[in-house]
Amino acid sequence: MLADFTRYLEAERRYSPLTVRNYRHDVEQFLAWLGVGDADFDPCRVTTEDIREWMLFRTEEGHLSAASMNREISSLRALFRWLLRTGAVSRDVTQPVASLRTSRRLPAFVPESRMSGIVSECEQDSEDFIRERNSLIVLLFYACGLRLAELVGIDRGDFSADYTSLRVRGKGDKERIVPILEFVREKILHYIGLIERQNICISPEKALFLTHKGKRISRTAVYRTVQEELDKAGVQGKKSPHVLRHTFATHLLNGGADMREIQELLGHASLQATQVYTHNSIAKLREIYAKAHPREKGGE
């Protein structure tokens, strides 16, 4: 059963390898809690009460947060919807189960004043391949709002002929086109020139971001690079590729960009996912309002 479910997630849902692995792990944990294996699992015997007891067990005994528990419930929902679709069960026992309420955390982002200095530093050209690669990683995250997996998956052939746009493969293998700003375009051309001049990649590897040995860079290496670059720039709080993606969206919204345009650039399936950035925008607006309003400035 698990093998067929995994193939469904990969082939039909087109989930990423990491998501597939997480879903399978969650289902395996649930089966272990039921005391059955894959071969002797009878989904028709599972009840909604079993699902609720599982949630109670995981949150109390496993000390899972509401967000983590909701992710595990999503895995079981995907399983039972698939089982219903294949005719293995006659009803979806997860349907009556409500997700746990989670505290809404605002996305962390880098202030514009600090980000301006980081961009200026990254714009400086050098002949050091690693320096240029790391600078371009930061610039593409910030200027294009990419996810980590999207950036790592970029091939040099994904750019338009004049390097003014980039084809991005997002979640579910959905593609979108994002524009490349001129200062980023110049950095890309300089970086690709370095690859050619220094013979970094003499193999058929097509990846944009390479190790010094000419292999596609890993997600871990990119994550570490962003942490180091932001730490070096004095950024406080969380430092990650997703923080730069949040920074991209927040700065666009503060600059007057339309919400639906930001949704398209981020590759969000729904506008609801993008609307979280309005909270940051409102916080900025409140700050400006407090400084500008006559009453706040001591007027009548």
Rank of each mutant, 00 (worst) to 15 (best):
W54K: 03
T86C: 07
D173Q: 15
L271A: 12
F141N: 02
V243T: 01
A39Q: 14
R85A: 13
A292I: 06
E150C: 01
S270Q: 12
V222W: 01
E150L: 03
V235S: 05
H279I: 07
V235D: 02
V235H: 03
E132T: 06
G117M: 14
S126D: 10
E10L: 09
R133P: 04
D26W: 11
H293R: 10
N199K: 12
G87W: 15
E53Q: 01
L208Y: 00
I195K: 08
K232M: 13
I200Q: 10
C44F: 11
R77W: 12
G157A: 08
S90I: 04
A98R: 12
K291E: 05
T247P: 06
T59C: 15
C201I: 05
P294L: 08
R131T: 12
E296N: 01
D38W: 13
P241S: 03
T19I: 10
S160A: 10
G193E: 09
G299Q: 08
A88Y: 07
G214S: 09
Y163N: 13
V119D: 14
N280M: 07
E60C: 07
P179K: 04
R245M: 04
E229H: 04
R167N: 08
A290D: 10
E60D: 11
N70Q: 12
M55D: 04
A149M: 09
